[in-house]
C-alpha cells in the first residue's frame, strides 16, 4: 500500500527533474537553454577564429626564423622569436619615411573631404532648388558605377595641368571638389544625417538673424558631430587603403625616391624593392637572406600596423559607426 502511494510521487519528482534538466539544456519560453547558448558561442568563436586566421598566421609567420619556415612541426609557434624579418622589411619599404609620407597623403585630403562633403550633404538635405533631383541622380550614379571608366580621363586632366608629379596636388583638388575617394558615400552619409535634424531648429536660427552660412556652422555642424567622426575615420581608412587611384594620381613612374608614396604601394612593390635592396646589401649579408615568406609577412604586418593601432584605440567609434551614421534609418 505504502509503496503504491510513494510511486506516483517519485514519478512526478523524476518528471520534474527531467523537465528541469530539459529546460536547462534546451531552454523554455523565457530563457535560452544551455545547449542553445553553447551552440551560439561555439559558432561565434569558430567564426571569429576563421576571421582572425589570416591575421594570426601573418603575425606568427613574420616572427619565424628561416629554419622554422622549413620545419613543418613549427606550423604555428616559432621555436625562437626573431625580429630580423621586420628589420629587413623596414629597410625594404623605407618604412619610417614611407609612413610619414603616407600619413601626409591620407590626413590632409581626409580633412578637406570631410569639410566639403558635410557642406554638400547639408546643401542637399536643407534646401530645395531646381534640378535637385537630377543632381541627386548623378550623385547616386557616381556612387554605383566603378571608377575605372573615369580614372584615365581624370589622369589626363591632371597631366595637362602638369600635376602628376608625385605630389599631393591631385588628391587635394579632387577632395576639395567633392571627388575624393568615396566622397559620394560621405556626401550620402551627411545628407542622411542632416535630413534627420529638425528643420525648425535651423529655420529659427535663420529668422533670428543668423544668415544661412552662420546657421550651418553654428547649428548644423555641431549637431552632426557623430557623422563627422564616422566620415573622418572612414575617409582616413579609404585614403590609406586605396592603391589603384593613388597610383594614378602619383604617376606611373613615381617612386618613393622622387615623390610621395603609401605603405600599400610599397607593399605591392615589395618583391622588386627587396630585390633592389638585396643587390645593394649583397656584399654585407649572407646569401641566405633571399626573400622568404616571413619577410613578406613582416612587410604586410608593417603595412597594416598603423590602421590596426588606430582601430584598437578607436574601435568603439568604428563599430558604432553604422548605427550613428543612420544608414539603416531610412
Amino acid at each position: 500500500m505504502k509503496e503504491k502511494k510513494a510511486n506516483p510521487d517519485k514519478i512526478r519528482k523524476r518528471e520534474n527533474q527531467k523537465e528541469h534538466l530539459k529546460s536547462l539544456m534546451l531552454g523554455n519560453a523565457e530563457k535560452r537553454g544551455f545547449l542553445g547558448s553553447f551552440v551560439v558561442y561555439l559558432l561565434l568563436i569558430v567564426i571569429s577564429f576563421i576571421f582572425l586566421y589570416p591575421v594570426l598566421y601573418m603575425i606568427s609567420r613574420s616572427l619565424m626564423s628561416r629554419s622554422d619556415l622549413l620545419d613543418s612541426s613549427a606550423m604555428w609557434i616559432p621555436s625562437s622569436l626573431t625580429l630580423h624579418n621586420y628589420e629587413s622589411a623596414v629597410l625594404t619599404m623605407d618604412y619610417w619615411n614611407s609612413l610619414l609620407k603616407n600619413l601626409y597623403l591620407a590626413v590632409v585630403p581626409t580633412f578637406c573631404q570631410v569639410f566639403i562633403c558635410s557642406m554638400v550633404g547639408y546643401g542637399f538635405a536643407r534646401y530645395n532648388f531646381p534640378l535637385k533631383k537630377m543632381w541627386m541622380a548623378i550623385l547616386i550614379l557616381a556612387f554605383l558605377l566603378p571608377s575605372q571608366t573615369t580614372a584615365l580621363p581624370n589622369y589626363l586632366v591632371f597631366q595637362n595641368l602638369r600635376m602628376i608629379d608625385g605630389t599631393i596636388k591631385p588628391f587635394l583638388i579632387t577632395a576639395i571638389l567633392g571627388q575624393g575617394f568615396k566622397s559620394t558615400l560621405c556626401i550620402l552619409i551627411f545628407y542622411n544625417f542632416h535630413r534627420q535634424v529638425p528643420q525648425s531648429l535651423i529655420e529659427d536660427a535663420e529668422i533670428d538673424g543668423a544668415g544661412h552660412v552662420k546657421a550651418y556652422f553654428r547649428i548644423a555642424i555641431p549637431l552632426a558631430g557623430a557623422a563627422i567622426v564616422v566620415v573622418t575615420l572612414f575617409s582616413f581608412v579609404w585614403y590609406w587603403n586605396e592603391t589603384y587611384l593613388v597610383r594614378n594620381y602619383l604617376g606611373y613612374g613615381t617612386t618613393r625616391a622622387t615623390g610621395l608614396t603609401t605603405l600599400m604601394l610599397e607593399l605591392s612593390a615589395f618583391e622588386d624593392s627587396y630585390a633592389n635592396a638585396y643587390t645593394t646589401w649583397a656584399s654585407s649579408v649572407t646569401s641566405s637572406d633571399r626573400i622568404n615568406d616571413a619577410i613578406r609577412m613582416a612587410g604586410t604586418v608593417l603595412a597594416i600596423a598603423p590602421l590596426m593601432i588606430l582601430y584598437f584605440v578607436l574601435q568603439k567609434q568604428f563599430v558604432e559607426s553604422v548605427d550613428k551614421a543612420g544608414i539603416t534609418g531610412e
Binding site: 566639403i116 557642406m119 554638400v120 547639408y122 546643401g123 542637399f124 536643407r126 534646401y127 530645395n128 532648388f129 531646381p130 535637385k132 543632381w135 548623378i138 550623385l139 557616381a142 573615369t150 581624370n154 586632366v157 579632387t174 576639395i176 571638389l177 567633392g178 571627388q179 566622397s183 556626401i187 544661412h212 552660412v213 550651418y216
Partner: peptide, 19 residues
C-alpha cells in the same frame, strides 16, 4: 535656391569635371 547651389557648388564643379 541660391544658398542651395552655393552649398553644393564645389561638388557640382567637381562632378562636372571628374565624373
Amino acid at each position: 535656391w541660391g544658398f542651395g547651389y552655393l552649398f553644393i557648388l564645389p561638388w557640382i564643379v567637381g562632378v562636372s569635371i571628374f565624373f
